[in-house]
């Protein structure tokens, strides 16, 4: 029985794959739109059926007519609900990574066709739906959360686009594979020694950086020289503008190393490294990364953090 269920699911997935192949841009048309009544739709039809029976039994043509009108309205609602989804173009947009076990976000751009599309609900499998309405020819951008289960690049699965507008009696929907992927950083795992080479001492020096630079001499000011380096004392003495010259300071740098976490399983290593990247970033340290399949030059700042996390997320995937 279980196996039968699985086979059916596989067949369904394969059929979907053929019918709506993955693409970063999908325009919904009749081949891609499914439609089925909602519970309220069935209730509505039940009322129409009751009125029909009433009309027959009481020989009341107006009751019959009313029940036919309800059925016709239901049929017209099929067209409207279908049209509300038809012509919508979905484009895969940007990506906001998140930590494994938490949520990331993927952008989907919803573009309207020749008419307005109201109350579209979009969601990735197992995630929260968002609602959007698009005016004709306009575009709306939606960031939809995705649940990230494990580290690395994660397929978003099929996006479910659904609408019940205008009457809520029918639901038309599509399952679209936007070929969208979300990056999952390793889940930070606190604790342990900082797996770094370069030493605490070097890191400590970062804060008094300017003092370590060696003064080399003065030269006359050239437009474009930093005003911070102008020798204001000599200017005040009337010797004109001069610029102080320093030699390049030797910088302390910290290398976070995969190798320094022996006896820990690989995923946990990434998690530890991730924790330390975040810690060092918060402390404003300059750090680099050395992993089995790549490394990152030491630096600091948000950009460095992004890069570090990305490398940690993709490491071990065979060159992401």
């Amino acid at each position: 029985m279980k196996r039968f269920g699985r086979t059916a699911r596989q067949l369904w997935q394969r059929w979907l794959q053929r019918r709506i192949p993955p693409s970063r841009k999908v325009t919904l048309d009749q081949r891609r739109i499914f439609i089925f009544p909602t519970g309220y739709g069935f209730l509505f039809l039940l009322i129409a059926a009751l009125l029909f029976i009433g009309g027959i039994n009481y020989e009341n043509n107006l009751l019959l007519g009313f029940s036919f009108l309800l059925v016709s309205l239901f049929l017209i609602a099929i067209l409207h609900t279908f049209r509300n989804l038809a012509g919508v173009t979905l484009v895969a947009g940007g990506m906001r990574p998140g930590f494994a076990g938490a949520r990331g976000a993927l952008e989907v751009r919803v573009q309207g066709g020749a008419h307005a599309h109201r109350s579209l609900w979009l969601r990735w499998p197992g995630a929260v739906a968002e609602e959007v309405s698009v005016e004709p020819g306009q575009q709306q951008s939606l960031w939809l959360t995705v649940q990230l289960s494990r580290r690395g690049r994660q397929d978003s699965g099929r996006l479910r686009v659904e609408t019940r507008y205008p009457l809520g009696l029918l639901r038309s929907w599509s399952l679209v594979d936007l070929d969208h992927q979300c990056l999952a950083w390793p889940k930070p795992l606190p604790g342990g020694e900082c797996p770094a080479s370069g030493g605490e001492d070097d890191a400590g020096q970062q804060h008094q950086r300017g003092g370590n630079e060696e003064f080399e001499g003065l030269r006359s000011y050239v437009a474009g020289d930093s005003l911070r380096l102008v020798d204001w004392k000599s200017y005040a003495r009337g010797r004109g503008l001069n610029t102080k010259q320093f030699s390049d300071p030797a910088e302390g740098r910290l290398w976070l190393e995969w190798q320094r976490l022996p006896g820990v399983d690989p995923e946990s290593r990434y998690s530890r490294l991730c924790y330390w990247v975040l810690e060092l970033d918060r402390a404003g340290e300059r750090y680099g990364l050395i992993l089995p399949d790549g490394s990152l030059e030491p630096d600091l700042g948000p950009l460095q953090r992004e890069r570090a996390l990305e490398i940690l997320a993709l490491s071990g995937e065979g060159g992401g």
Partner: peptide, 23 residues
Amino acid sequence: YRRVQFTSDMLPADILGVSIYDP
């Protein structure tokens, strides 16, 4: 024509200019 070599410790005033007190 002017040429400015940009460095990391440059300030906006280094490009735009500055008012200086002339003794």
